[in-house]
Design a binder for these strands. Structure first.
Lengths: 139, 139
DNA sequence: GTCGTTGCAAAGCGTTTGCAGCCTA
DNA sequence: TAGGCTGCAAACGCTTTGCAACGAC
């Protein structure tokens, strides 16, 4: 078995920084936009390849929010869930895991769960002002 | 405004039957395979168009399971959650909604949630026998 | 210098759409 | 008969892959 030494390139650094800097789950598009700032000329393929490498490495983990393309966040955090803003499309991490229990049919065995809340985030919840739609509003 | 009268075709009937018959959330592929039995020559485009029509009509609803393409199930049921078998790829409906609560950050407002359990279903949970893999095992 | 990495473009894959013919009402 | 519906194939958006040049070690 051959051990591949990973190289520390400008592009990969920019991508890692994007996650560290923004601090919430990001889409490939968001990573691309953010990392491009630090490393112009960066290609989409590199973003995908780097994200995959970071996933294999365990540095990133996937956040699957129903109805959206997969997002990625820095791994190693405690078990937590996510909040998906239906107005601006941003996804946030929620702290801690609410207690979740279900009575499963006989013969079923559960190994984990995934919980997503929907609603409006602090920027988008109306407070007497009109609702803003800062970014893409999902599909 | 013009009201479009929906026609009751052999294809649409076959697709409706597929859902009624199998009784669990289905992927477009599964619908295609199943409906094709009753209506050979059925095209994938028709499956997509019919599913969309049935969604608009309110007869179907989307089941988004993280990491899978969207599934569809007959609508009108009570609020419930889903169980995704990591062995055979099937998705099942669970009865009732387990109590779910979370403390959201200030300014956040939740309108709904989505909960998916992972594990092995009654066919796939080992009972001393070998594990079977009846259909497609997901992506 | 080696060989992992990059950017580009082409290919893949699931889904959608344009179009001419079909078939339900 | 009218016009919604169908199957086919092309188009689409997102992701992956092939390849030659690049650059970290």
């Amino acid at each position: 078995m051959k051990v591949v030494i990973e190289r520390n390139t400008r592009q990969k650094q920019a991508i890692r920084n994007a996650f560290a800097h923004i601090g919430r789950p990001l889409s490939t598009e968001e990573v691309y936009d953010e990392a491009r700032r630090a490393s112009s000329g960066l290609g989409m393929a590199t973003v995908y390849r780097s994200i995959r490498a970071l996933l294999d490495e365990g540095w990133l983990s996937v956040v699957e929010v129903p109805g959206r393309n997969p997002l990625y966040e820095i791994a190693g955090k405690e078990h937590h869930h996510h909040f998906s803003c239906t107005a601006c499309g941003r996804v946030y991490e929620l702290e801690g895991c609410v207690s979740v229990d279900a009575t499963l049919p006989p013969g079923f065995k559960t190994t984990g769960h995934d919980l997503t809340f929907y609603g409006t985030c602090d920027r988008c919840t109306p407070k007497g002002k009109s609702i803003k739609r800062p970014q893409s509003a999902g599909r």
